[in-house]
Design a protein around this nucleic acid. Structure first.
Lengths: 109, 109
DNA sequence: ATCGTAGGCAACCAGAAGGTTGCCTATATC
DNA sequence: GATATAGGCAACCTTCTGGTTGCCTACGAT
């Protein structure tokens, strides 16, 4: 069985995105280069452990992935979930557009 | 002064989206028709006050708007923020694409 | 071998979040 | 005016969250 994700709800992804510090991490990782925890901690204003926790939240949501290299662990963006999240928003807003169009049509005809 | 929003960070919007029940509310409101709290509560499995709280969180994030009509308050989607949120995700993922392209180019040349 | 740097683990803490219940007010209807 | 329905307010409870600190391990360079 191919590692099926059960309910596939986007909520956890959004929850992971719902924090300033995590968004900052994502944008820094969005620069492309994989970064170590130490470097991510550098100008962040919070402790190394704080950063680690945030990274794990992001990883738990599938937004980010790590790999060890020597004594440091390098983190990088995971594109797939980001796009899934975008699609979820598209879905709601498109559904809404269509319904409104229908309602409007109904009223105007 | 035109009611300037200060930092304009998308984090609170994502946080608001980061809950199953709230996503359900949004999709129900996405059907277009404004709905009362009573109707939203109906098959939801949680109490009326629970629903009210969720609606207020959504409203706080600007995702939803209410208006009183008689004894009931009707809730509907607010399109703007939804689109802002989409744009935020676009931004990150596009930034990431571009950086990766650059890195790749750099490596390959 | 030892010293500095990168990071993991665990405990702890305060405050926020999700949810409930009880009670009160307002509107509508009979 | 009495009654049923829609909703607001406030208190409360439990769990989750964001953050810290202290200490231990692993790797790398000298």
């Amino acid at each position: 069985m191919p590692q099926r994700r059960k309910a596939s709800t986007p909520a956890p992804v959004f929850a992971a995105l719902g924090d300033e510090n995590r968004l900052r991490l994502l944008t820094r990782l969005g620069e492309g280069e994989p970064l170590s925890i130490a470097r991510l901690t550098a100008g962040s204003g919070i402790s190394r452990q704080g950063i680690t926790k945030h990274l794990r939240v992001l990883a738990g949501a599938g937004l980010v992935r790590s790999s060890r290299r020597g004594k440091e662990s390098l983190w990088q963006l995971e594109r797939r979930r980001l796009e899934e999240a975008r699609r979820s928003l598209d879905l709601i807003s498109r559904q809404w557009d269509e319904s409104l169009a229908k309602l409007k049509l109904f009223v105007e005809v």
